[in-house]
């Protein structure tokens, strides 16, 4: 069909141009600069692997990258556990107000990063809502000092920020799950646990993987939350990159860290896909087996 080619040129064309100019090209420039070095206040185009050697040999950068990946995986796991029953409930127990419930879940997302963090500081701060409330009710005598500016606070707010993405991913899977399967399994004598482990979990695995990927990537990239909520524990690989592009002028090193992080993220995702793909449970997630 001749119209097909025109159609693709008119639709895919401009989008590809935008993606290349605004995303791939800047990332390419970032990659090129990562091989350069800084001399005083200027960038010297003298290609070497020096920056990467520095990133990989530095204990603190390795630690920060590992910490970011771990934190992404941890938050993905926590949100998965919290979101699972919610997604099931919305997909299987609600008919009339389904769209409204999903929209209601997404509305806090549209408040913007800063408004949300601002609110959590009001809640968790030393003179914050939670402490004042507990003292007011007489549950405690003096404020709990460690609520805000702790790794726990960061975890709570990260879970809060990205829970809706996990619910969305899982909800899509539950929505396509055929209820007759449950009845058939129950008729054939399967108990609740068997149905959950052998039927529900494998069939919702695609949604779980989609949700986990979104949460993982978003958590690794989040630096305002650890910085403004985590206090001293809030140094992340992302804030290290931001510093190198700000006060500590070293764009090449910052670029090398950024690219190392990107490669590490892709590596983790690829590893998960390969490992899961080998189990019968996970092969359902990637449409094989």
């Amino acid at each position: 069909m001749d119209g097909g080619r025109t159609f693709l040129a008119a639709t895919v064309g401009p989008v590809l141009v935008a993606l290349i100019v605004l995303c791939l090209a800047p990332l390419g420039v970032l990659l090129v600069v990562s091989f350069f070095r800084v001399d005083f206040v200027s960038i010297v185009p003298d290609p070497s692997l020096h920056n990467y050697a520095q990133v990989l040999s530095s204990g603190s950068y390795r630690y920060l990258i590992a910490k970011a990946l771990m934190s992404g995986a941890t938050i993905a796991a926590i949100t998965a556990v919290i979101a699972y029953p919610v997604a099931f409930f919305i997909a299987k127990r609600i008919r009339e107000v389904k769209a409204a419930l999903l929209t209601a879940l997404l509305i806090p997302l549209y408040t913007g990063d800063l408004v949300r963090i601002f609110a959590w500081r009001l809640i968790l701060g030393r003179e914050g809502v939670l402490n004042s409330f507990l003292i007011w009710t007489g549950a405690i005598d003096r404020p709990i000092e460690t609520l805000l500016f702790s790794p726990t606070a960061t975890t709570i707010v990260l879970v809060y920020n990205y829970l809706p993405f996990m619910v969305l991913g899982l909800w899509l899977s539950f929505e396509t799950l055929d209820d007759h399967l449950f009845e058939a399994a129950a008729d054939l004598g399967a108990g609740r646990t068997t149905i959950l482990l052998r039927l529900v979990l494998p069939l919702t695995a695609p949604g779980l993987v989609a949700g986990a990927l979104m949460v993982f990537a978003l958590v690794v990239g989040d630096f305002i939350t650890p910085q403004l909520i985590g206090g001293a524990s809030g140094v992340t690989v992302i804030s290290a990159i931001a510093d190198l592009f700000g006060a500590a002028f070293d764009w090449p090193l910052g670029s090398a860290i950024a690219w190392t992080l990107l490669v590490a993220m892709v590596g983790v995702v690829a590893a998960v896909v390969v490992i899961l793909g080998r189990t019968p449970w996970g092969s359902a997630a990637f449409g094989r087996g």
């Binding site: 791939l24 090209a25 970032l30 990537a217 690794v220 990239g221 990159i241 764009w251 670029s255």
Partner: peptide, 24 residues
């Protein structure tokens, strides 16, 4: 490939997009 490229801006940490923009 096109679908994957389309979600790249969502998956890349925003700060990396930001510094890539600044450099470019």
């Amino acid at each position: 490939l096109f679908a994957a490229l389309l979600i790249v801006p969502f998956f890349i940490p925003k700060i990396i997009l930001a510094v890539a923009d600044v450099i470019a």
